[in-house]
Amino acid sequence: MNIQLILFFVLALVAIATALGMLVSRNAVYAALFLVLNFATVAVFYLLLDAPFISVAQVTVYAGAIMVLFLFVIMLLGGEKLNYPSKLPWQRPAAIVLGVILFAEAVIIVLGQRGLLPMDMALPEYFGSPVDIGGTLFTQYLLPFEVTSVLLLVAIVGAIVLTKTEKK
């Protein structure tokens, strides 16, 4: 049992526990904080997978910006205690059954396609570094990169227009 495997299993346990904590938590603020912890563990998984740039982006964008926005809106609306009982009694068992079916399908696919999955191989020295990611992003993926800038502009305009209060 080497150090990476131990680290993986401990972090996997934390990730699943925090995801379940988000699912069952009655208070929306607790749910958001569980999700922050989940995103932080996923950032460590990215480090284990030789993706340091994505790992830092995960912490700043997801655990930082997005979750701060979530917490801000929860507190703005006073929504931390808003729990609504479901009106459909069959929904909960149906959702659990569908989840179990999805899990069984995924297990069958992952274990059934074992031969097609990539094996462990040595990586190039620079793999996943900001130089590598930036070089690929600004040459091979330049057009999608520009399109995302338009997407962000649309999101800014949309958010402002939606929350603007009309002057009579």
């Binding site: 699912l23 979530f70 929504g79 989840g99």
Partner: peptide, 11 residues
């Protein structure tokens, strides 16, 4: 499961 089980739009 969270999408299917919870009714709070934020969750």
């Amino acid at each position: 499961m969270g999408v299917l089980l919870r009714r709070n739009a934020l969750i």
